[in-house]
């Protein structure tokens, strides 16, 4: 399942997935990014949800098709099918619940088992507004992200903190990989046909990851 046809104008179409334990705030991160909404009375996600948003990177329009997945382990039977063809992932944990951070390792494995090895991954510590309840330190998460070569950011969907940055960073990194790759083969990146899945080149991403994470 790659990215699907979209009808409006864009230069690039990237498929992203939102994964992580149940109740860490995936759906609210998505609604904050795509609709600038936060819902205190949100229901738990059953199955998958979907939303899109386009942003500008350099002078290009980059469109994200984002799949938000149910977090409970049992649902992976359905949701793992949605990892296929994803070029970016936001792996979310809740900074107030350490167990959700501990489970990140399993999510990473799940992700790497089901996606191209070059997928751009952002580790996201959500609910950073709950300062007095924090159970996962920034340093701990940062160290983990460096070890695992993923990007890292702390966010608050409630306070609209870093949400834009987290998604934009993932999309920008994918864009850089793709446009550089296209340049290398002497192609005009803008000439890529609409709706075609962008496969991120292997070498490019490892090069890119050495630049480091935590641009926040």
């Amino acid at each position: 399942m790659a990215a699907y046809r979209a009808d409006d104008d864009y230069d690039y179409l990237f498929k992203l997935v939102l994964i992580g334990d149940s109740g860490v705030g995936k759906s609210n991160l998505l609604s904050r990014f795509t609709k600038n909404e936060f819902n205190l009375e949100s229901k738990s996600t059953i199955g998958v949800e979907f939303a899109t948003r386009s942003i500008r990177v350099d002078d290009k329009v980059v469109k994200a098709q984002i799949w938000d997945t149910a977090g409970q382990e049992r649902y992976r039977a359905i949701t793992s099918a949605y990892y296929r063809g994803a070029v970016g992932a936001l792996l979310v944990y809740d900074v107030t619940r350490h167990i959700t951070f501990e489970n990140v390792e399993r999510w990473l494995k799940e992700l790497r088992d089901h996606t191209d090895s070059n997928i751009v991954i952002m580790l996201v510590g959500n609910k950073a507004d709950l300062r007095h309840l924090r159970a996962v330190s920034t340093e701990e998460a940062k160290a983990f992200a460096e070890r695992e070569k993923t990007y890292f950011m702390e966010t608050s969907a409630l306070e609209s903190l870093n949400v834009e940055n987290a998604f934009t960073e993932v999309l920008t990194q994918i864009y850089h990989v793709v446009s550089r790759k296209a340049l290398e083969v002497g192609d005009d990146p803008a000439a890529l046909p609409k709706g075609q899945t962008i496969n991120v080149g292997k070498d490019d991403v490892s090069a890119l990851k050495k630049i480091g994470c935590c641009s926040a």
Binding site: M1, Y4, R5, I46, F50, A81
Partner: peptide, 20 residues
Amino acid sequence: EMINPSMYASQWFITVFSYS
């Protein structure tokens, strides 16, 4: 259009239409 029922109908069955 590459639409399959898991994109919209899982909750119909899992909650017998009571979810949304």
